[in-house]
Design a protein around this nucleic acid. Structure first.
Length: 809
RNA sequence: GCUGGUGUGGUGGAAUGGCAGACGCGUCGGACUCAAAAUCCGAUGUUGGUGACAACAUGUGGGUUCAAGUCCCACCACCAGCACCA
């Protein structure tokens, strides 16, 4: 068979007959399969795309054959930084390059032979989509979930531009190598932290990999402790620290503020100012990863100020240190050198007091300092003798009575910063009016202008687009106003696209609430594990926020999640241009066809593991499909079948049904490699039968039919062609998946293993229906078993019916 | 550093606590052929033995069990994620 010609033929016929069109009337039986949509990159589809889309399509095709009404859409996450960088480099407008890339990728995606419903294609960079991204911003704003505050950005003083983390290499600008500094800008945030608790709780009910759930739990990072108020010693103000170890408060001998803490400027004494300012400037140059690195020495400087430990009135020094982050907790920590390893090092280095307040619970505990485990309080006045677990509550309670503390749950999760000082994104629908302040622009879409200047010169392309910024009046009072010059993080675009798909071109609404409640949640979501914390968390947040606004009536967007593994380059590295190890599927698809390539990807890897690329064995898959063709064709010659091995047809029927059973379990669990292996076994079984010119070949033909159906999800064109060639009517791709006949699996006789003292000794063929007791008697009566035992007394016999008998002598 | 994962022949990988290595690749041998390709058949964990067979084998060392790749403990290596989380 000329596989490539056949693929072209069926691809066209399927498009024409709209065999994959989602049946809107049959929603009760819907099955929503979604692969994370593509970024329209300038390089073509790589092997990883095929691995994700091709094999998930096989899963979707399996669901169709199991009678589901499958909805499987495709689209493009089309905004983003690379297109803008490309524009700066080449002058090609992001819109032009992006739309062109999409066109190329659409053609390539169609070659996979996936049953995407292109009628509902999404391109996030089109106004028909991003107007609703802006609508989401507007709704969050109206419900108090979008707000502005100052936040630092990476700033390259030489390029005069904001850099993404990705563009900062070792603290330097990737373009000009200048030292990158932090700069505060007022930016928009989404209040994802309002949902921290629910995002955490909701994980329990999800059919997601445990690994991913664990990562989200860590990311949300719930911790329970106390918030404690420290007054400044001169009475000029106060600040709070968060701690999970309030039981160690008596050992607090200093406090450390983040260098960015708002109080630093105010409290620093004149004689310390120079040192403090120099330190702050130095910290602005480092990124968070450097600041928090364990390998780095803990640095800090004294501000000259003192605060009062609220539990015992001690005067403690106020320091600043880069290991304290302004974005976590209260931006201030108490220093307890005796019971915290980090504080211990810090205190040793700077000569600060170390005071034990916890001792080991029992004498055998090594409680030499720093002693960081729970223990018993000491040197803590009225609290002496309390164990840490009780002590940390008691201390906070005592402080609460004086208004100096409260129990507090803290989350590591931060609010979602969505402002980007970029052009190629959805404009933020906010207008600034000199009279009314910030005003939501509900006249959507706020269209992204095409004619902009990309050359970086200190302002983003939108900010210097006079017409876009200034050609606007306040919606409230009509006064001349200005637009927000920033665009939305592309994660905002991708946080709701699964809601848009089922009705992608609706121009009245982002989605129809009644319809969406029937279509969602997504039944199977497939994509890379690298999105575990960002995209997957944002999507859950948006779903919950829209639910609380009354637009949705479900809690979670993705009921079931699968991560495909990563196909590495042949050298074992991640495929990338820099490694020069990118493998193009086209080189193989042009030679062997899409079906062979899909089957190879299915067979050669554990789907969720992935691994280094190697094309060893792709020829073998090609040959195997040729074998399938030969046996299927033979079955439909005017032939019947005799058995070369001397077994009767029962054996063929048994293998046939065993294969059905196994493959029927493998597809839904994404175990494609074993599914192929089982089908190979079936073909091997078929090969044991010779075709001879007699009639009556029903079983052989039925087996061939089943084989085609089992294989169809992986090699749809190939199977459709053979289905037609063997005279069947209708399309195999929507035919019913074979059902296993359990009766065929029940053998009358079975071989069991007899072990003596757990060592395999004798094999016996026995009646498969023998109950335990009789099986034991049968085995013990057997001559060869008696011989193997050799007269030693039998102490114990373990019988596993159908498998083995273990005789302990 | 913390957390999670992985570790099985020359190789990709199979194994609800029950005969480790299914199914492939590769290699070796054979059939067909003038020859090659294609196809088909057979062998293939290691060691010892002509042999039937025996011993040893799932990163290392212990443990539980009649029975461990699988469960428990410790360690080693590699990979991924997170970065002092107060």
């Amino acid at each position: 068979m000329d596989k490539i010609a056949v693929e072209r033929k069926w691809n066209e016929l399927w498009q024409k007959s709209q065999v994959y069109k989602f049946d809107k009337k049959n929603v009760d039986n819907k099955y929503y399969v979604l692969e994370m949509f593509s970024y329209p990159s300038g390089s073509k589809l790589h092997v990883g795309h095929w691995y994700n889309y091709g094999l998930t399509d096989s899963f979707a095709r399996y669901q169709i054959m199991k009678g589901k009404n499958v909805f499987q859409p495709m689209g493009f996450d089309a905004f983003g930084l690379p297109a803008e960088n490309y524009a700066i480099k080449t002058g090609v407008h992001p819109q032009d390059s992006t739309l062109h890339n999409i066109e190329v990728m659409e053609t390539q995606l169609k070659n996979i032979g996936a049953m995407f419903d292109w009628d509902h294609e999404i391109k996030t960079c089109l106004p028909e989509y991003y107007r609703w991204t802006q609508w989401i911003f507007a709704e969050l704003y109206k419900h108090g979930l979008a707000y502005r505050k100052k936040a630092p950005v990476n700033w390259c003083p030489s390029c005069n531009t904001v850099l993404a983390n990705e563009q900062v290499v070792d603290g330097h600008c990737e373009r000009c190598d200048s030292q990158v500094v932090k700069k505060d800008l007022t930016q928009w945030f989404f209040k994802i932290t309002d949902y921290a608790e629910e995002l955490l709780d909701g994980l329990d009910g999800l059919d997601w990999p445990e690994k991913t759930k664990a990562m989200q739990r860590n990311w949300i990072g719930k911790s329970q402790g106390g918030e404690i108020v420290f007054d400044l010693a001169d009475g000029s103000g106060s600040f709070k620290v968060f701690t999970t170890r309030a039981d160690t408060l008596f050992g607090c001998t200093y406090v450390v503020l983040a260098p960015e803490h708002e109080l630093v400027e105010k409290i620093t004494l004149p004689e310390h100012r120079a040192e403090v300012n120099a330190y702050i400037e130095e910290v602005a140059k480092t990124n968070e990863i450097e600041r928090l690195s364990t390998a780095k020495e803990k640095t800090g400087v004294f501000t000259g100020a003192y605060a009062v430990n609220p539990i015992n009135g001690d005067k403690v020094q106020v320091w600043i240190g880069d290991y304290v982050l302004n974005s976590y907790g209260t931006g201030a920590v108490m220093g307890v050198p005796s019971h915290d390893a980090r504080d211990y090092l810090f205190a040793k280095k700077h000569g600060l007091t170390i005071k034990r307040v916890i001792k080991g619970a029992t004498a055998d505990v090594d409680d030499s300092l720093p002693f960081c485990d729970y223990g018993v309080m000491c040197n803590s006045g009225e609290f002496d003798g309390l164990i840490s677990e009780q002590g940390k509550l008691a201390v906070v309670q005592k402080l609460a009575e004086k208004g100096k503390g409260e129990l507090k749950t803290n989350y590591r999760l931060r609010d979602w910063l969505v402002s980007r000082q970029r052009y190629w994104g959805a404009p933020i629908p906010i207008i600034y009016c000199p009279h009314c302040g910030e005003v939501l622009d509900e006249n959507l879409p706020v269209t992204l202008p095409y004619d902009v200047e990309f050359r970086p010169d200190g302002t983003s392309p939108l900010a210097k687009h006079r017409k876009f910024i200034h050609d606007v009046v306040c919606p409230k009072c009509g006064a001349p106003a200005t637009r927000d010059p920033d665009t939305l993080d592309t994660f905002v675009c991708s946080s709701w696209y699964y809601l848009r798909y089922p009705d992608a071109h609706n121009s009245d609404k982002p989605f129809d609430t009644e319809w969406i409640d029937k279509m969602l949640p997504v039944d199977k979501y497939v994509g890379g594990a690298e999105h575990a914390c960002m995209h997957l968390l944002y999507a859950r947040f948006i779903t919950k926020a829209l639910r609380d606004m009354g637009y949705l009536h479900f809690d979670e967007p993705f009921k079931s999640l699968v991560h495909q593994g990563v196909i590495l380059g042949p050298d074992g590295n991640r495929m990338s241009k820099t490694h020069g190890n990118v493998v193009s599927p086209d080189d193989y698809v042009n030679v062997y066809g899409a079906d062979v390539f899909r089957c190879y990807l299915a067979f050669g890897f554990r789907y969720i593991e992935g691994g280094p690329w190697s094309d060893d064995g792709i020829k073998a898959i090609n040959k195997w499909l040729d074998r399938v063709e030969r046996y299927v064709t033979a079955a439909y010659g005017d032939y019947a079948v005799t058995d070369k091995t001397g077994r009767d047809e029962k054996e063929l029927n048994r293998v046939r049904n065993a294969t059905i059973k196994a493959v029927d379990a493998d597809y839904p669990s994404f175990s494609f490699n074993t599914a192929v292996a089982r089908m190979m076994e079936l073909v091997n079984a078929l090969s044991k039968y010779d075709a001879l010119p007699v009639k009556n070949a029903n079983l052989y033909r039925a087996t061939a039919d089943d084989l085609l159906k089992l294989l169809c999800p992986l090699a749809p064109h190939f199977c459709e062609e053979l289905w037609q060639q063997t005279g069947h009517s209708g399309s195999i791709v929507v035919s019913a998946f074979p059902v296993c006949d359990e009766r065929a699996l029940q053998a009358e006789e079975t071989e069991i293993l007899v072990q003596i003292n757990s060592r395999p000794k004798v094999r016996l063929t026995v009646d498969a229906t023998l109950p335990k007791q009789e099986l034991q008697e049968f085995v013990l009566a057997d001559e060869s078993v008696k011989q193997a035992i050799g007269g030693s007394p039998v102490k114990n016999v373990i019988v596993i019916p159908g498998r083995l008998v273990n005789i302990i002598v």
